[in-house]
């Protein structure tokens, strides 16, 4: 498979009032066309920073991102982003939100009728065609996130970037959204990078799970290939030994190898946590 996106040894150093803060160190990842990659790691480790560098919203301090052989230097619709809190324009309806993106990307190449069809097609894809003319404050969180995904899909991006797209949703809605996303993915075969902190979500959706170490100077710890057959069925997988093995691999990475040391655990008397605490302190 051909590499479409090359995240090439990026460092990210933020200037802060207390001096430079190295958030990322030598993050290196190659992604093939049509691959679904999850980024997982403890909160604050630098997942969003990686995504923002790929999106072009941040400029890496060292290294760079190469998409289709060309270096990325600014944001663009070929790297559409689905933000965590939907970020729909509150004064526009669902239809108008998607339309704004479609007009901007395809305004020259599509006729008026084609634009309308394309907007509606994408809203249908996320099952939001029934509420096209509703404003964001008139629809639920899950529906808003669907419209956000429709907006991103409508740009026909080379890479779809999603920052905890379902993080703010309740468990049932989230499961529903995951199924929808798998359906869409089976149809469109997009190249996707998705940030998540939900282990089941990562295993269920991904072709590869990229596990990040804790910051500062976070980097890629391990990469886990998920070779479960598609289409995947969450109920069937629950009893699948391979699925459960993969799941426990991720859990082990997160809770043993990259155990996050919070102030609460400092009082615990296990050897592991005492050792880690002293390391951090």
């Amino acid at each position: 498979m051909s590499v479409i996106l090359d995240i090439s040894k990026i460092d990210m150093v933020f200037p802060t009032p207390k001096g430079p803060f190295t958030a990322l160190k030598e993050v290196d990842l190659q992604i093939s066309k049509g691959e679904f990659v999850s980024l997982i790691g403890h909160s604050g480790c630098g997942k969003s920073t990686v995504l923002n560098v790929v999106a072009g919203l941040y400029q890496a301090s060292k290294g760079g991102v190469i998409l289709n052989g060309r270096e990325v230097s600014e944001p663009g619709p070929e790297r559409a982003v689905v933000f965590q809190n939907h970020s729909l324009l509150p004064w526009l309806t669902a239809y108008q939100n998607v339309e704004l993106a479609v007009k901007q990307v395809f305004g020259r190449s599509k006729s008026k009728a084609e634009i309308k069809d394309w907007v509606e097609h994408n809203l249908k894809l996320v099952h939001m065609d029934h509420a096209m003319n509703k404003r964001p404050d008139e629809i639920s969180g899950g529906m808003k996130q669907r419209v956000g995904i429709a907006r991103a899909l409508a740009m026909q991006p080379e890479v779809l970037l999603m920052d905890e797209p379902f993080g703010a949703l309740d468990a049932l809605t989230r499961a529903h959204m995951q199924d929808s996303l798998m359906e869409i993915q089976a149809e469109l075969n997009n190249t996707v990078i998705m940030i998540t902190h939900d282990v089941d979500e990562a295993v269920l959706l991904s072709d590869r799970i990229v596990m990040m170490t804790n910051g500062p100077a976070a980097t890629i710890g391990e990469i886990l290939d998920i070779n479960l057959e598609r289409p995947r069925e969450r109920l069937a997988l629950a009893e699948d030994p391979e699925y459960n093995h993969l799941r426990s691999e991720v859990l082990k990475f997160l809770y043993e190898k990259q155990r996050k040391v919070e102030p609460i655990s400092a009082t615990k008397s296990t050897k592991e946590s005492t050792k880690k605490t002293t390391e951090v302190a």
Partner: peptide, 29 residues
Amino acid sequence: IDKDLVNVSRVLRLPALKHVQKIVLPASI
């Protein structure tokens, strides 16, 4: 203005005038 909305505009590469017209003005009404 919500930074995410500005980022939406950047990802869409809205030209400056359109950015003001479509994002800035309605957001600050």
